[in-house]
Amino acid sequence: MNYQAVIFDLDGVICHTDNYHYQAWKQMADREGIYFDESINSRLRGVSRMASLEIILERAQRTYTAAEKEALAAEKNEIYRQLLMNMSPADLSQDVAATLRQLKDAGVKIAIGSSSRNAKTILRQIGIFDWFDAISDGENITRSKPDPEVFVKAAGILGLAPSACLVVEDADAGIRAAHDGGFHSAGMGDACGNDEATYSIIAFHELSDIVLGKRMQNGPVTE
């Protein structure tokens, strides 16, 4: 089928900031004397900041008050925001840029559906903030993925029903959110092959054939 819009997760789909998140959480955890490694970090993908903090605090040697948790989350975010200043248009791959342009040229609306409160900063840093018809992010939602709120609000801004939109995600929590919100989805990265995804893709440019109706649902994964 043809889709009128594509709603993209940001981190791991449009660009990659995983390492910046890891560095920021690692600095915060080290200062608190809390064990944190890449295995724990992998559990944080697609999860809100406060929910991520709760996962990290599972290894803490003491209990933190709500105020202390807020302070730790704020500390992590400040470190992360400083690291994001290192991003530039060089962090946008040619494949992503070319595919986004192709979709826009075909009259397809494009939107961001990200739980991050730093989504707009990232988009500005990599030079594509003005490309998107809608941005739904951590600033306008109260429930993070796997709740579908972020995608539902993006579709609402676009003035479209979920059935007219394709969600692109690299995390299982995002695929679950899309499924529960009534959206078709394309799973890539860690979500490639997710049973709830309508499509599985490896290369970003595969989206063009999907969105423009040239590839059937549950088509083969491109090698």
Rank of each mutant, 00 (worst) to 15 (best):
G189N: 12
M1Q: 09
Q125G: 02
D95K: 06
H205A: 09
E32K: 09
L100T: 08
K76V: 04
K214P: 10
D172F: 07
G113Q: 09
S114K: 04
K120V: 13
V152Q: 11
E58D: 12
I141R: 03
L44Y: 02
D18P: 01
I14S: 07
E78Y: 02
T198A: 10
V167W: 12
E169R: 09
F129D: 11
C15F: 02
S144M: 03
R59T: 03
P162V: 05
I202L: 11
T63P: 01
A178K: 08
R143G: 02
D147E: 10
M28N: 05
I7T: 09
R62N: 04
I202N: 09
A191S: 13
V96S: 08
I141T: 11
R124Y: 04
Y20V: 00
P148V: 09
L44E: 00
Y80L: 03
R62C: 06
E169D: 13
T142S: 12
D180Q: 15
W25V: 06
F183K: 07
C192K: 13
D105R: 11
A154L: 11
R31T: 14
L84W: 07
S115F: 00
E223D: 10
D180K: 15
G219K: 02
R59F: 02
A71N: 10
A73T: 02
V221F: 04
T121Q: 12
P146V: 13
G107W: 11
I175V: 15
S88W: 01
L158K: 08
D95S: 08
L123R: 03
K76N: 05
D180N: 15
L83T: 03
G187F: 12
S88E: 06
E38K: 15
R143C: 10
I141P: 00
G46N: 10
S88M: 06
D137F: 04
A119K: 00
G219V: 06
N218R: 12
A178R: 08
Q23Y: 06
E58T: 14
F132K: 05
F151L: 13
I157L: 15
V13Y: 08
E223K: 10
Y22E: 09
H21W: 06
G46Y: 09
G113V: 03
E54F: 02
K69Q: 12
A203M: 03
G182S: 07
G113N: 06
R124W: 02
P146S: 09
D180S: 15
S208G: 00
N2F: 14
V47R: 06
A171Y: 02
K104T: 15
G213S: 08
I201A: 07
L83D: 03
E206F: 05
D190N: 14
A60N: 04
I201M: 10
I55Y: 10
I128E: 13
A67G: 01
D137G: 01
Y64G: 01
Q61E: 13
L83F: 13
L44H: 05
Q4R: 15
Q217P: 14
G189M: 11
R43D: 10
D37N: 15
Q82P: 00
I40Q: 06
H21K: 03
D37R: 07
K153S: 05
L160M: 15
